[in-house]
C-alpha cells in the first residue's frame, strides 16, 4: 500500500517505511544508539529528498530519545549541569547547522556535504569501535586461555586539563574546562542539522575518552542533550526550510519506538563486546556504501535541482 508524503512529494510503500522503522528501532534499542545514522541514508536510498530525510529523521530522534531520557531522569542517572552546558553548545551548533544547510541547498552542494559527513564520521567512529571491540574480544579470548587479568587503565592528564574556564561538575566528579564541553555540544548540534542524527555516536565516545565522565551518567546525559538539540533542530528545519514531513515522521516514530523496546530486551542477552563489534561492522558497511556512491560513475553526469520549492497551488 503506497502513501503520498505531502512534504517530500513522493509516494512510498507504507509497510516498507514501518518495517524499516521497526528494524532500525530494534537495532537502536539493542545497541543503545539513536539509529539516525542508519535511517537517514536508507531514506535517501529509497528516494526521499535528502533535505526532507535529514529534517524528518531529526523529528523521529526526538521521540526515540524522549523515552530513554525520561527513564534516565527518573533514575537520576544523568549529570544535569553537564547536560545544560552541552546543550548551550548544541544550540549554537544547531542554529549554525540549519543556516549552513540552507546555504548549501542554495548552492547545490547539500547532497555532497551530507555524504561526505557520513563517510567521514562513520568511517572514523566505525573504525575505532571495531578496533576497540576486536581488541577486547581478543583479550577475553587470551584471558580465557591464560587467565591474565587486564591492567586497569591509568588516567593520564592531557591537553584538556590545561584549558581555561574550568567549572566543577559534582555529579560527574569532574573539574574541567568549558571549552571542550561547549565544543562537543556544538559539534553534535551541527551534526543533527546536517546529517539528521542525534549525534550519540560522537558524543558518547567524546564524553568517555575526552571529558572522562563516569560511564554511569554518560548515556543519560547524552540522551538529555540529544533530546533538546533534536527538538530545536526539528523546529528550526520546519520553520526555516519547511522540510519536516509529518506523515513520514509519524510512520518512522511508530516503527522506531516499538522496535526500540524489543531491541532493548534482545540487547540484554548479548555480550557487550560482540554487540559493539556488530555495530561497528554495520557502521562501516553504511560508510562503504556511501563512499562507493561518491567515487563510482554517477547514473547521470548532470543533476537537476528545482531552485525554489515546488510552487504550491
Amino acid at each position: 500500500m503506497d502513501i503520498y508524503l505531502p512534504i517530500a512529494e513522493v509516494s512510498v510503500n507504507i509497510f516498507l517505511i514501518l518495517g524499516l522503522g521497526l528494524a532500525v528501532g530494534f537495532l537502536s534499542g539493542m545497541f543503545g544508539v539513536g539509529g539516525g545514522f542508519l535511517m537517514t541514508p536508507i531514506l535517501i536510498f529509497i528516494g526521499i529528498p535528502p533535505p526532507v530525510a535529514v529534517a524528518t529523521q531529526t523529528n523521529q530522534i526526538v521521540a526515540s530519545s524522549a523515552s530513554g531520557a525520561i527513564a534516565h531522569f527518573r533514575r537520576k542517572s544523568l549529570d544535569l549541569k553537564m547536560g545544560l552546558y552541552l546543550l548551550a553548545g548544541g544550540v549554537v551548533g544547531s542554529v549554525g547547522g540549519v543556516w549552513l544547510f540552507s546555504f548549501l541547498q542554495a548552492t547545490g552542494q547539500i547532497n555532497l556535504v551530507i555524504s561526505l559527513c557520513y563517510v567521514g564520521f562513520l568511517g572514523i567512529i566505525g573504525g575505532l569501535m571495531f578496533v576497540e571491540s576486536a581488541t577486547a574480544l581478543w583479550r577475553r579470548y587470551r584471558q580465557g586461555k591464560a587467565g591474565i587479568t587486564p591492567r586497569p587503565r591509568r588516567r593520564r592528564r592531557g591537553l584538556i586539563d590545561a584549558l581555561p574556564f574550568k567549572v566543577r561538575f559534582p555529579v560527574s566528579g569532574l573539574y574541567i574546562s568549558l571549552i571542550p564541553v561547549i565544543g562537543i555540544g556544538a559539534l553534535v548540534g551541527l551534526l543533527a542539522a546536517l546529517m539528521g542524527v542525534g549525534g550519540g555516536f560522537v558524543m558518547v565516545p567524546a564524553m568517555i575518552y575526552i571529558l572522562r565522565m563516569p560511564t554511569s551518567v554518560v548515556i543519560g546525559t547524552s540522551l538529555f542533550q540529544i533530546l533538546f538539540v533534536t527538538a530545536l533542530t526539528t523546529f528550526l528545519q520546519a520553520a526555516q526550510n519547511q522540510t519536516v514531513d509529518l506523515v513520514l515522521a509519524a510512520l518512522l516514530i511508530v516503527g522506531g519506538v516499538i522496535g526500540a523496546q524489543f531491541g532493548a530486551r534482545a540487547g540484554q542477552r548479548i555480550r557487550a563486546e560482540e554487540l559493539r563489534a556488530a555495530l561497528a561492522l554495520m557502521v562501516l558497511a553504511v560508510c562503504l556504501k556511501l563512499a562507493f556512491d561518491l567515487v563510482s560513475d554517477p547514473v547521470d553526469m548532470f543533476e537537476l535541482m528545482e531552485t525554489a520549492g515546488r510552487s504550491a497551488s
Binding site: 505531502p6 521521540a63 524522549a66 523515552s67 526539528t234
Partner: peptide, 27 residues
C-alpha cells in the same frame, strides 16, 4: 502542506510535541 508553509513555526512546534508525546507514551 499549506500548514507547513503558512504557519511554519507552529508546524515545527507541533512536530516536536507529537514526537515527545509518542516517546513518553511508549516509555
Amino acid at each position: 502542506y499549506d500548514f507547513a508553509h503558512d504557519h511554519a513555526p507552529l508546524y515545527g512546534m507541533i512536530a516536536v510535541i507529537i514526537a515527545l508525546l509518542a516517546g513518553w507514551s511508549a516509555a
